[in-house]
Design a protein around this nucleic acid. Structure first.
Lengths: 243, 243
DNA sequence: ACCTTTTATAGTCACAGTGACTCTTAAGGA
DNA sequence: TCCTTAAGAGTCACTGTGACTATAAAAGGT
């Protein structure tokens, strides 16, 4: 904020554009899915890309991210307002957009299994795609998506974030499925249960309706997210490193 | 990257400027210090601020951060090139700079105790200030600095980053001082030692010259940073939450 | 010289948390 | 009715850590 090129006039240089890109992740049927849109115009017309768009002149990036998310998924504003949205990283390579200098602030959102999006805005189509079937994306969105997955995997270790992938009331089996899906490893059921229940504030039992079935097997008790946000001590991934 | 306002022309809107700001932290005599510059021009002329500056048209933010750091500290380029620089977060509130719309990508750097900087660039002065004597800063730099401190404190828990605060060869006492200073809590000496030495790749013993004095007391063995970057299991802060 | 202070280094002990299991309970389906 | 599936209860051993105690090796003061 201090050094200003000699005689700098904001309008003399080719201006920077600022965009937001969203890596919206969910768990569907035991698989990690990503919300993608098909581009309707050049460059990369027809290619899949992360949803996102330009930050408007009087808007913060976080506000822009929520606005774009609402526009491109067709979710009611109240739902989008309550979502966990987290700034991931900012991507600034000079040639990441062939049109002009674009700096993009990437956000990650974790959502429960949502209805199929309608392709809003000027996206030709918007869809949930399984993470491991994602084709090469436009711009540097492959990189952004990989960073998002790694970040989310790491955050599951030391935060209560996993509940953001679940509906308001969920079973411990559903919560465990989130961990197994994002980390890509199976977890021991009893140990997972013990860890979650002994961490104060991670989940709280739902009172009245005692149990619910998840298909086959013994009906499971329902829980909702507790007040805690951090996990002490953390719930570490089984072996070595990141996904 | 998809929604583009109808008829958007990059030059029709008031352009965004993109800057980098640097929270450069070091440990000096048991206290956390921050590198600050005194602004030479409006706005906030005379106020202290984080070093930083505009991203040039053909430059990535990371490159800009290194360049600005070199300019404003006068460090040799080779030293700056080897520093641990990490993108912290991007600050995008519309009114964070009264002149125009400025989006700033903040970086954090951890450095060993360095010589006093010479105020380069157009900073009136550049100095190390103890973290808890930092006055109100220009722009939203108080917020950036607080975020940086919190992030660094958290990263010490699960990475080997602490060695970045130390000179190439250091004693375990010096390494422990880094933790105690950043976290603001005393650590048990033997337990800290055990943890560091049993974590493979955190530090490695320096062979030949057996010991070095740190002033009074028994001379300590020297170590240098090992090859590991992550700490499994982590070295958690004693009690509750963030700084 | 001796003693005090300071810091490094070695070692002990108990306990919390976890990984790897086993066993029982309660559903659905063939 | 039996088999399958998943929830939930409980056991056991081991690892890592917090809290300490003890010893070693220097500097400084008297």
């Amino acid at each position: 904020m201090t050094t200003r090129p000699e005689g700098y006039d904001p309008r003399a240089f080719e201006p920077f554009a600022v965009t937001v890109d969203l890596a919206v992740l969910t768990v569907r049927g035991g698989r990690l899915h990503v919300l993608l849109v098909q581009r309707g115009q050049e460059p990369y017309a027809g290619a899949w890309a992360l949803p996102g768009g330009f930050v408007l002149p009087r808007e913060s990036a976080g506000t822009a991210a929520r606005r774009e998310l609402a526009e491109e998924t067709g979710l009611p504003g109240a739902v989008v307002a309550g979502l966990h949205l987290e700034q991931l990283r900012t991507y600034t390579e000079p040639d990441r957009d062939p049109r002009m200098r674009v700096v993009s602030v990437a956000y990650t959102a974790l959502v429960p299994d949502l209805p199929e999006p309608r392709g809003g805005g000027d996206a030709a189509e918007a869809r949930w795609l399984p993470y491991d079937e994602v084709p090469a994306l436009a711009f540097d969105h492959d990189l952004i998506l990989a960073d998002a997955r790694e970040r989310v995997g790491a955050k599951l270790e030391y935060t209560c974030l996993a509940t953001a992938f679940c509906p308001p009331e969920f079973t411990l089996g559903e919560l465990r499925e989130v961990y197994e899906t994002v980390w890509g490893v199976p977890l021991d059921r009893p140990n997972f249960r013990r860890k979650v229940l002994t961490t104060p504030g991670f989940v709280e039992a739902v009172e009245g309706p005692p149990r619910r079935t998840g298909g086959r097997g013994k009906p499971a008790a329902l829980y909702r997210a507790g007040g805690a946000t951090a996990l002490h001590p953390p719930l570490l991934r089984p072996e070595g490193r990141s996904a």
